[in-house]
């Protein structure tokens, strides 16, 4: 039996048989790890409470053929501030699903781990989880090399001129000049959510300067979640743009995105 010790954050859990469960961990040394927790669903299990989602702990595991096995857990934090707020639990579930999609299995990824650890800390501390979720989406896509461009036109490479729009399929923000070069029917198509690129039709969203500025701040803030909030049109546009980016990068829609979308429409506790 080969034992190893690693720090980790529990991203999700699924039942296994009658008494056990499988957890997915994000670890700095091992990347994504799937491990069995024996007896975790028995009432007197010592491992049940310390292997709940969003828990950060030091894990002792034994390597297995397909799944590792959790032997011992020493708790660092269970993030009680997240677990006591419905909106924050939903947001934490969404960012956990996203980081699981964008992290390779069994591959060292210290930067991803520490970034995600600070995401959960920020989520616990901030009153409005919106900015933390948006900063996480931008940060994870940026680290994966999948973030489209926001500050120059994806078609001509020039400055963004209004009216601008955004299309993940076209590669990012598209300037008004490229938009205006199309005929009136094309622009009407953009307003309706479609843009003609040659013979192709791609999904596009009209975006305001405030939205592009917000996206740039989120991208340039690095490991520090920025202190910003957005309301009304900008908030909705940022939500739509990043939803399109995530869907396009993953080639599918995350299961938790519908629920998190309904929560992030308006500022928390408003």
């Amino acid at each position: 039996m080969s034992l190893y010790q690693t720090e980790g954050i529990v991203l999700s859990q699924t039942p296994l048989g009658e008494n056990d469960k499988i957890i997915t961990l994000l670890s700095p040394e091992e990347g994504l790890v799937r491990a069995v927790v024996k007896g975790a669903r028995k009432p007197k299990s010592r491992l049940s409470a310390v292997t709940q989602p969003f828990t950060r702990a030091s894990f002792q595991l034994s390597r297995g053929k397909s799944l590792d096995r959790v032997i011992q857990v020493s708790l660092k934090t269970s993030h009680p501030g997240i677990l006591s707020d419905y909106a924050k639990v939903v947001c934490a579930s969404y960012v956990s699903e996203l980081v699981a999609e964008l992290s390779p299995e069994k591959q060292q990824n210290r930067e991803q781990f520490w970034f995600f650890s600070s995401v959960l800390d920020h989520l616990e501390q901030r009153e409005d989880p919106w900015v933390v979720v948006k900063w996480t989406e931008v940060g994870l896509l940026l680290r994966a090399g999948l973030l489209p461009s926001f500050d120059e036109c994806a078609l001509c490479g020039g400055e963004i001129v209004q009216p601008a729009y955004f299309s993940a399929e076209a590669g990012g923000a598209v300037c008004g000049k490229c938009g205006q070069a199309k005929d009136a029917a094309d622009w009407a198509g953009v307003q309706a959510g479609n843009l003609a690129l040659g013979e192709q039709t791609v999904r596009a969203i009209p975006v305001s300067p405030g939205t592009l500025k917000t996206l740039e701040i989120l991208r340039d803030s690095g490991n520090q979640c920025p202190n910003l909030t957005a309301k009304g049109q900008v908030r909705q546009e940022v939500n739509d743009v990043l939803q399109q980016c995530v869907d396009h990068a993953l080639g599918k829609r995350l299961k938790s995105s519908l629920l998190v979308g309904s929560i992030l429409v308006s500022p928390h506790r408003e």
């Binding site: 939903v90 956990s96 299961k255 938790s256």
Partner: peptide, 9 residues
Amino acid sequence: YIEPLKGVG
């Protein structure tokens, strides 16, 4: 139960 990861709202 509400399970965001399974899309159950």
